[in-house]
Simulated scan of single mutants.
Amino acid sequence: MKIRKVTAADLKLGMLIPWNVYGDTGALLVRKGHMIASATQIAYLIERGSFEDYTDSGPEATGPESVLRKLNGACLQLQGLQQAIAGGAAPPGLRRKLEEIATLVGDAISLNVDIATASILHNQRQAPYPVRHCVDTAIVSQVLARARERAPDDIMAVTLAALTMNLGLLEDQQRWHDGAGAFDAAERARMMAHPELSARLLAEVGITDPAWVDCVLHHHENEDGTGYPFGKAGAQIPPLAKLVILADRYCARVSERGYRPAMSANAALRDILLEARTTLHTNLASLLIRELGVYPIGSYVRLINGEVAVVSRRGLQSTTPHVESVLGPRGAPLDVFLERDTRVPLHAIREVLTNAQVAALNAPPLRMEQVWGRAAAL
């Protein structure tokens, strides 16, 4: 496989493009199968476009690494292991298998942290909620642990804890996710007990690592002592567990439920900052905002000129990220996304939109590859 520039000989009016065409930054310009409708499109693609040419490659040629493929692979592997552990039938080499999943998450972050964190907002239907939420929480936990410059063993511990924190809830979690949101007394009791049950299930399969298990046990504690299952406060809560606590709450807020739409990432961070006055660690809440940004990558925004855009990468300042416009000023989907610099007054951010608000505008589902290129391919 080689990357080749689009030439005039490759295109003609009315043809269906036989490959994905990418820009200089790797962002997807036009998807395979798009019909060339004008000479202007041809000129644009010749000027900016490249494609992956497999004509000289063998049958085993593969495309570049993809963050989403790594994360979806982690979800697929985790789903089977979660069910096996909860059912008391752990497979041989369980610890190694869980560490391999944690390594997949870490590799995805290292490949492109922006795509990894944006996937929490735009990759929600690729796995059942109990699985996907754990992988999402593992992403944010590891981002925070790296930002704190924790040792590799600590980074592995928080990642493994996030992947296994809800083993004691597997039978209930998807049903609660899809339901009306009200718990009866028995359900609330199971919710309050699940950190200890999850730790016990890990112990039954031979996993007793203190750092890992402590994070599982304490991932619902609060700084002011109002959490569960122990009601610990402040310094009584293990420092690594505080990373998982914060990641868990952020990921829960930005996930849609049967009884409510997903919050915007910006609103979720605002809520977390308010909670930091009582239930969350103030410095860690600020760290989360610093790492994800005021407008987290993947957030939808409306610009001053009326376009709807998705935040694609950070800008020079946290309040002026780079975005890709996906809907025009009158709400029409754009065949080719337009990169905008929000420092420009006409393209400044007017408001944040939720995924549900954008869907209500009849916007087609966002394919992450359109914004972040081949590293976001499914």
Rank of each mutant, 00 (worst) to 15 (best):
M1E: 07
I3W: 15
L11R: 02
L13W: 06
I17M: 07
V21N: 12
D24E: 15
T25R: 15
V30Y: 14
H34E: 13
I36E: 00
I36Y: 02
S38L: 08
S38Y: 01
Q41P: 03
I42L: 05
E47P: 05
R48D: 13
G49E: 10
F51N: 07
D56N: 11
P59W: 10
E60C: 07
E60I: 07
E60D: 12
A61Q: 10
T62C: 02
T62Q: 14
T62V: 12
G63N: 13
R69G: 06
L71R: 06
N72D: 14
G73E: 07
C75I: 05
C75W: 04
Q79V: 08
Q79R: 14
G80E: 13
Q83D: 09
G87N: 11
G88V: 04
A89N: 05
I101N: 12
A102L: 06
A108N: 07
I109G: 00
L111E: 12
V113Q: 10
A116T: 02
A116F: 04
A118G: 04
I120K: 12
R125S: 12
A127Q: 15
P130G: 06
V135Y: 03
D136K: 01
T137K: 00
Q142K: 05
Q142N: 14
L144T: 05
R146C: 07
A147D: 13
E149Q: 14
E149Y: 09
A151L: 14
D153R: 02
A157N: 04
T159G: 13
A161Q: 01
A162G: 00
A162F: 00
A162P: 02
L170K: 06
E171I: 02
Q174L: 11
W176H: 11
A180F: 04
A180K: 04
A180G: 12
F183E: 04
D184Y: 03
A185E: 13
A189L: 13
M191K: 08
M192A: 15
A193E: 10
P195V: 03
S198W: 01
A199Y: 00
R200G: 08
E204F: 06
G206Y: 10
V213C: 00
V213Q: 02
E223F: 06
E223A: 11
G225A: 06
F230W: 08
F230E: 13
K232F: 14
A233G: 08
A233Y: 03
Q236D: 10
L240D: 00
L243E: 01
A247Q: 00
C251F: 01
S255G: 10
R260T: 05
M263R: 15
A265R: 01
N266D: 11
N266K: 11
L274T: 09
E275Y: 15
R277S: 13
H281M: 05
T282W: 08
L292I: 13
Y295P: 05
I297H: 02
V301E: 05
I304D: 10
I304W: 03
V310E: 01
S312F: 00
R313M: 10
G315Q: 07
L316W: 12
T319S: 14
V323N: 00
V326Q: 01
P329C: 11
L334D: 06
L334P: 10
D335I: 09
V336M: 13
V336T: 15
F337W: 11
R340W: 03
H347D: 15
A348V: 13
V352Y: 09
T354M: 14
A356G: 07
A359S: 06
L366E: 08
M368R: 05
M368K: 01
W372D: 00
G373N: 10
A375W: 10
